[in-house]
Design a protein around this nucleic acid. Sequence first.
DNA 1: CATAGGATCGCCT
DNA 2: GGCGATCCTATGT
Length: 197
Amino acid sequence: MVDKRLDTDFYLQDDVVTAARNLIGKVLHTHFTEGHTAGLIVETEAYAGVNDRASHAFGGKITARNHVMYHTGGVAYVYLCYGIHHLFNVVTNVQGVPHAVLIRAMEPLHGVGIMEKRRNRPFVPGKAFSGGPGTLSQALGIKTLHSGESLMGQEIWIENSELKIAAERIIAGPRIGVDYAGEDALLPYRFKLDKMS
DNA sequence: CATAGGATCGCCT
DNA sequence: GGCGATCCTATGT
């Protein structure tokens, strides 16, 4: 394959939960001034638009922060959480439908030295390095200023992997940190790649 | 304008 | 397992 990038059809799909599941095993790349970094996506969460109490777009709310969720699929939605962490989401579906997939964790593949510098800590295989959405963004250099940026450009993109992930290795469960969402907090919208044993 | 709280993390005990 | 960091955002007056 010459072009391994996800195509527009992937980002336009109307089932964000399926999109979240299918992003497991894909490779997230960034190329900023420090160089090229990439990691295997191993954990995601779906945020299912206006009817999902856990979503920033619940009830059709549109604000300066979240309006990029309403863009045509294939852009980044990045926002600051707890004043510290820049959380990276992939916007999906057609314009006007605010679906997004939070990328929660990855395993570093390329540019580990750059990531170590950004994280200010060494990468030790087997130990958590970018095991959460905040540290993932930090390792890849993604910040809130990238919110709204295309995922088809030269700075942030996602590629298919040669790696085939068996369906039974993808574990579904409730999302993290969304207790405020009532019964929607129980939805199995979180996907995680089970560790090989 | 004031204020409460958050799709987290890492260090502390 | 507990908690402080840290600041933007949303909301209400």
